[in-house]
């Protein structure tokens, strides 16, 4: 945007294996959200290469990008981004609608994923009738419903109190335990410690990339 371009990321080089749970950390303005948006094909990198599941992601048309997002990626946002006039179940079923899954099957699958995040009873409720933690769990269910290769979470706990944060992290860890690849952007150290690998960004470059001993969130959750 604008005539003076701002270089946010200045040479990032890393790869991520299947089944990893990676935390991307950094202070605000360090470029962590930009990195995640590029990985999520929500934004485009000016230069560089990005290969997802051995598919080069380059010069995508809007339509192609939408299809890749639908097939490969699941998103969890800080502000949940649920569609406010659709019930929890309809929200979860939405990515399946874009995969042309038949209606019946879509609803069954949505209920199944809501059950996995413990919100089966809330299926018919609108987002406005749910708490913040519940909304984020619906968002996670929605991201998982499309069975993506990678789950991208941008500050998933940013709008939640610490107790709810741990509940959400517990859920993310469980999903990871099932073999799903997850990237979490966060600036909270305790959240980062619950991942298996932490990448520190500063001023658009990676300053640290280390494997960590995972702290299970379950112990904080009754």
């Amino acid at each position: 945007m604008g005539s003076n371009s701002l270089h946010v990321l200045k040479g990032i080089n890393f790869s991520c294996e299947s089944g990893e749970l990676v935390a991307i950390m950094g202070s605000s303005g360090s470029g962590k959200s930009t990195l995640l948006n590029i990985l999520g094909m929500l934004d485009e990198a000016d230069s560089g290469e990005y290969t997802l599941d051995s598919v080069p992601i380059k010069n995508l048309t809007e339509t192609k990008a939408a299809q890749y997002r639908n097939k490969f990626l699941g998103f969890v946002f800080q502000s949940f981004n649920l569609i406010n006039y659709k019930s929890a179940m309809e929200n979860v079923a939405l990515p399946l609608y874009y995969q042309r899954v038949p209606r019946k099957e879509r609803q069954e699958k949505a209920i199944e994923y809501l059950d996995r995040v413990g919100l089966k009873e809330w299926a018919t409720h609108l987002p406005s009738e749910l708490s913040g933690g519940q909304k984020q769990r619906v968002a996670i269910a929605r991201a998982m419903a499309a069975e993506p290769k990678v789950l991208l979470a941008d500050e998933p706990t940013g709008a939640l109190d610490s107790k709810t944060s741990y509940e959400v992290m517990d859920l993310i860890q469980k999903i990871n335990d099932e073999g799903n690849t997850i990237l979490v952007v966060t600036h909270e150290p305790d959240i980062a410690e619950m991942c298996k690998r932490v990448i520190h960004l500063k001023d658009g470059v990676i300053v640290e990339d280390k494997k960590v001993e995972q702290v299970r969130a379950a112990q904080y959750v009754q």
Binding site: T63, Y98, A146
Partner: peptide
């Protein structure tokens, strides 16, 4: 606009 953004993130093509 926001809803459209969400839908696009979830895989809605521009045509849809």
């Amino acid at each position: 606009t926001k809803e459209i953004g969400i839908r696009k993130a979830l895989g809605a093509t521009p045509k849809k």
